[in-house]
Design a protein around this nucleic acid. Sequence first.
DNA 1: AGTTAAATGCAACTTTGTTGCAATACTACC
DNA 2: GGTAGTATTGCAACAAAGTTGCATTTAACT
Lengths: 139, 139
Amino acid sequence: MLELHKQAEEMIRARGERATSARVHVLATLLAEQRAVAHHEIEERVRRKQKLDRVTLYRVLEWLQEKCLVHRVVSADRIWLFRANLDAHPHPHAHFECTRCTTVICLDDMKAEYDRQLPPGYRSHEIELRVKGLCAECT
Amino acid sequence: MLELHKQAEEMIRARGERATSARVHVLATLLAEQRAVAHHEIEERVRRKQKLDRVTLYRVLEWLQEKCLVHRVVSADRIWLFRANLDAHPHPHAHFECTRCTTVICLDDMKAEYDRQLPPGYRSHEIELRVKGLCAECT
DNA sequence: AGTTAAATGCAACTTTGTTGCAATACTACC
DNA sequence: GGTAGTATTGCAACAAAGTTGCATTTAACT
Ligand SMILES: [Mn+2]
Ligand SMILES: [Mn+2]
Ligand SMILES: [Zn+2]
Ligand SMILES: [Zn+2]
C-alpha cells in the first residue's frame, strides 16, 4: 500500500510534475487494481483515506491520462473506466469485458485486422478490439 | 420519402405489431440514412414532420431494437447511435468511426480473432471490432 | 518563511437517459 | 363507420456522468 504510494509519487515526479496528494492517491489506487475502474469506485476508495471532491477527481483522471500515466476504456454502460499504464510508452491492446459482472481488463496485444475492403475513400488508422464473455469468477 | 414510410410501416406490420405514427416516422428516418444516427438528430428530423416527445423517442428506439428492426452502437462520445437493420436476422459486424467528423457506419462483416490466450478461466463469447480512421468526406 | 502558479473545492449547470402516471390513439370487433 | 380496451404517448420529475467558473488552498522554488 505504502509501496504503491511511493511508486505513484515517483511516476509523477519522473515526469517532472507536481505530485499532489490527490494525484498520488488516485494513481496508487489504480496501480493496486488489475481491472479498469470507474470514477465512482475510485472516489469511494480514495475518500476512505483522504478528502476528495468529485470534480477534482475528474480533473486528476484527465491529467493522469494526458501524462500517459493512465488510459481509459468505455464500459458496457458507457462510462469511463481507468487503468494505470504499466508501460511508460503504452501500445494498443485489446480489452475483455465480462458480460455478467461487467469487469473490464486489458489484454496484452491485439492481432486484429479488417481484411474486407473499406468503402472507397475511407482510410483506416487504428483498430479497436473488445472481447466479450465470462471472466474467471463468473464462469 | 413516402416510399420509406411505406417500407417502415410494412416492416412493423410484418412483425404483427402496431404501426404507430411515431414508430413509422422514426424507422423511416433511420432507413433513409447510411450511417448510425443519434437520438438528438432523429428527434430533430422527425419533429419537422410530426410532434414527438423525447421520452417517446427513447421508448420507440428501445422497442425497435427489441423487435430487431434496429441496432445500436456507442459513439465516440459515448451516446447511442441507431441504424436500421436491413436484414431481418442481423449478423455481427464491425463498425467504422471517422475520428474527424465522428460519423459511424456499419461494415459488412468482421473477421476478428483474438489469438493470444485469454487469462485462465476466461471464456470468450463474442468479439467487437471498431475500425477508426477518416471517412471519404474527411480524407 | 514568502512568493507564485498550479491545483482544489464548491456551486451551478448540461446532457443523456429513466420512471410514474394520466391522457390519447391504435386496432379489432361489431 | 362507430366503439371498447389496451398499448402507446406526453408531461413532469428525476438520476447519473461529466463540465465550467471562480474563489481558496497548496506544492515547489528561492
Ligand atoms: Mn487497456
Ligand atoms: Mn452496425
Ligand atoms: Zn465476471
Ligand atoms: Zn468523417
